Computed example of a mutant assay.
Amino acid sequence: MAEEDEIVLSFNDSIIRKSDMQLLDGPYWLNDRLIEFCFEYFEKEQFNHSADKLCLIGPDVTQFIKLAPAEEIAPFLEPLNLPEKQFIFLAVNDNQSSDKAGGTHWSLLVYIRNIQEFRHYDSQKGSNTEEARNLAYKLQPYVHAPMGRMKFLEQDSPQQQNGYDCGVFVIATTEHLCKELCEGYNISLMDMVNSSSVSKKRQQLKELIHHTAREYGS
């Protein structure tokens, strides 16, 4: 790897390089490595008090679940103890290739056990509906959701005003819902996540990555 694309942060299974950080300057689409880091940070640090009931599945595993044959999925999901989790988050990408990165849009799929419901949050409403619905069907037996008529709902979600902020909306929406579901936060998603807060979130993520790198000696 060229020196100019040096590693900025190594955190559990996440590696963030200088080129990834540059995507946060905008106006750029976020890649899977940045979303993977945020999901890991939320689960292992910010919301680790709820680790027994919370599972955030990053983009790579989500993409595998979406595209792999059903019989190959179980070995990847069993270690996650999904039947024990109350809230399961997945970053959904519209990429249909199993062997290379890509895609043009991110959205968020959440399973909430106590109401036995999959909820889809899409900042470009309707763009990832089929991808998210198909993913929910594949996940249904592994989360022990009731068989038969699956509850899949498109949620009212904050909407992006450009073609590149979908990944930041996924991160901001995930953080907000974790606060709501795990900490009783009672300010609505629509009031807290918007184009202005998402623009600020890019700088906040840069600061979080640098702070985590200092804390973990990366």
Rank of each mutant, 00 (worst) to 15 (best):
G167P: 05
Q22G: 03
E36C: 03
C182A: 10
E4P: 06
I65G: 04
D94I: 08
V198M: 06
T129Y: 04
M192L: 08
L9N: 04
Y111F: 15
S14E: 06
A172W: 01
V193E: 01
A136V: 13
C38S: 03
Q22M: 13
N93L: 12
L67R: 09
I187Q: 07
S97A: 11
R149A: 14
A213Q: 11
G217T: 02
Q155H: 04
L9A: 07
V110E: 02
S218D: 05
D94H: 05
L30V: 02
Q22V: 14
R214S: 11
A213S: 12
F169P: 01
P79Y: 14
S10M: 04
L189M: 12
C38N: 04
L90T: 06
D122C: 10
K53Q: 10
F37P: 06
P146R: 14
F37H: 03
L80V: 03
D60K: 01
S123H: 05
A2M: 12
P79R: 03
R202E: 07
A145Y: 02
T173K: 01
I88E: 02
D122Y: 08
A74M: 01
F37D: 00
H105D: 02
F64I: 10
L139V: 10
C178S: 07
I115E: 15
S14R: 06
E78G: 00
L109R: 04
K201E: 05
E207S: 02
G148M: 12
A136R: 09
F76P: 02
V193D: 07
E131N: 14
Y164T: 11
L77D: 02
D13G: 12
Q86E: 12
N48A: 08
F118N: 10
N128W: 04
E40H: 06
E36F: 03
K44N: 12
Y111Q: 00
Y28E: 10
G58I: 09
F152Y: 15
I88C: 04
Y28C: 03
Y185R: 13
P141G: 10
I35P: 01
I57D: 02
D5I: 10
H176F: 01
D122I: 01
V8A: 00
S195Q: 02
G148D: 04
Q63S: 15
Q160F: 10
A132T: 13
S197A: 07
D94G: 07
L153K: 08
D94E: 01
C166P: 09
N186R: 02
V61G: 00
R149H: 12
